Amino acid sequence: MPAGDRLWVSPGARCRQTAEALGLGGAVDVPELAGLEVGRWRGATLGEVSAAEPEAVGRWLADPTAAPHGGESVRAFCDRVAGCLERAAEQDGRIVAVVEPEVVRALLVRALGAPESAFWRVDVAPLTATEFSGRAGRWNVRAGRPLEGRA
């Protein structure tokens, strides 16, 4: 994994623990990089929620503006996360961030100018690197590179 000039981490416990395990001490929590807020569905599996509220789950998966769980919609989430991509573009040097898989999905959607419906079509494997290079408005992406240890 390439070294970074700045280290960002999603505020979730597993991201902080992963950053520490990767030797990325001193990472700064970035609230905008928190995972998708799913409201009252938090802590339940998709299978559990689908069994209890199939129509609501169907609406959520089909409509990027829907938030039947009382949390944030996919569109709002992509907008929130995209702010970090814009902020990163304004800074010099490399930023290394340890984030939830859905954050990577949202960044990919925004960086590539894809519709929000593509959010559910991207799989992000655990412990892989996705690199964004370029600048705001013109991003290049290298996705899914396995981590091989810290350089």
Rank of each mutant, 00 (worst) to 15 (best):
N140A: 13
P146F: 03
R150L: 14
A76M: 08
G39F: 08
A56F: 01
E100M: 15
D92A: 15
P64S: 13
V109A: 08
V99M: 09
L112Y: 07
G43P: 05
D63S: 09
R145H: 03
A114F: 13
D92R: 15
A52D: 10
V98A: 03
L36A: 07
G144W: 03
L36F: 11
A62K: 08
D92E: 15
G144K: 05
A97I: 09
D29L: 07
A88T: 06
P101S: 09
G35Y: 05
R87P: 05
A129H: 05
G93A: 14
T65R: 13
T128H: 02
R150T: 08
A106F: 09
E48M: 02
V109Q: 08
C84H: 01
G39H: 10
F132L: 15
P146K: 08
E102P: 00
V124H: 02
G149S: 09
R135K: 10
E102R: 14
A27E: 05
A136M: 01
R145N: 00
A97P: 03
L85W: 10
P54D: 02
E48T: 06
R40E: 13
G47R: 09
A151W: 08
L147M: 07
G83S: 11
R42H: 06
V38M: 13
G137A: 01
R135Y: 00
A136C: 04
E90H: 03
W41T: 06
A136P: 00
R75G: 05
P68V: 05
N140H: 10
G25E: 14
S117V: 14
A82G: 15
P68T: 07
A34G: 15
V103G: 01
R142Y: 00
N140P: 00
R40N: 02
L107I: 10
L46D: 02
L33I: 05
V141F: 04
R40A: 13
V96N: 03
E148P: 00
